[in-house]
Nucleic acid binder design. Sequence first.
DNA 1: AAAAATATGTAGACCGATCTATTAAGGAGT
DNA 2: ACTCCTTAATAGATCGGTCTACATATTTTT
Lengths: 184, 184
Amino acid sequence: MGKKGTETRDRLLDATQELIETGGYFGTGLNQVVAASGAPRGSLYFHFPGGKDQLVGESVRRAGRAVTDTLAGAEPGPSAAEFVAGVLRQLGDRLAESGWRKGCPVATVALETAATSDLLHDACSEVYRSWEAALRARLEGRPDADDLAVTVLALIEGALLLARTHRSREPLERVTRQINALLS
Amino acid sequence: MGKKGTETRDRLLDATQELIETGGYFGTGLNQVVAASGAPRGSLYFHFPGGKDQLVGESVRRAGRAVTDTLAGAEPGPSAAEFVAGVLRQLGDRLAESGWRKGCPVATVALETAATSDLLHDACSEVYRSWEAALRARLEGRPDADDLAVTVLALIEGALLLARTHRSREPLERVTRQINALLS
DNA sequence: AAAAATATGTAGACCGATCTATTAAGGAGT
DNA sequence: ACTCCTTAATAGATCGGTCTACATATTTTT
């Protein structure tokens, strides 16, 4: 793959990632992706012969990998509770600064495609498993690390959903205040 | 409104409620609604002149009210932790029995329409507030009942999302095991 | 009480717009 | 010269929404 080809491919993935996080799978048309990326229609199907599902699938995995890396790469300094509080604050910043558009880059697609596309569905499932593993690594040593990792992930996803729906940081702040009870 | 008119209207709402819970807002076409309800297209726009948004909006509020009533009407016997555990078990049953289609009847629409339709968006927000209030009523007396209600709601929503995505009760079970730490 | 008038609801063909996907041809890079 | 990639026209299906004609109640008038 030549240089220009790779650039176009990346631009398509960037545009898709941005658009589906805001509008979801069905809410994002390929016309929008093509317009936002600047790439022509034909290039889309050259780089992603699998069509929309392949394009969105790779975007979701890409976005998921970025989060996993952030979670795994953070300094191991603070306590588990402080770590989660930091994640929630960071997510709240991102959500508010984006005008309540950018919550979880996976959740909308996961719910929309739960009943239809296995390809996308599996991609979302794997991303969540990957985040779960990254969180579990931060809770190492605790006897119930497995349960706790899933619980913390559920808490984060639920709080993000509520915060985005209410267009307010309030749910994130309330959850943050209760984290100590869980991770004490 | 005559008897037959009310019946048709209800059938349309029933079909919509069922379909959007599985497929979401954009994933559900009015053709599907019309086919599933047995009502003709014209009747849809007679009973819901506001079109798809009005139809889905009323469906969401209707589904939300049903849940609120269930939450508020449950016997006040068990402890808060046992109450939440019961809710999670019930949600898990519903999810599994529906073939992993029926999770939260609001979440998908809330995320899909967060950036587009204020009408639907507000409907989802109000439903969540109503559930939050119902949960808070079960935690009366605690000094941090406000924070706890939101936290429990976030936990439920997040666990449902993960369970639906993984097609497994595992996340619900793990969260259930951690509830005591939160509501001890 | 019969008949006319009005409201209520049904029925489905139809509209333009938009959707995803395909195609055949030509340009750019090496 | 040969592969890699772009370009734009277009196909065919489906989308939400509108329209007119018709049927069935309900009320008003006589």
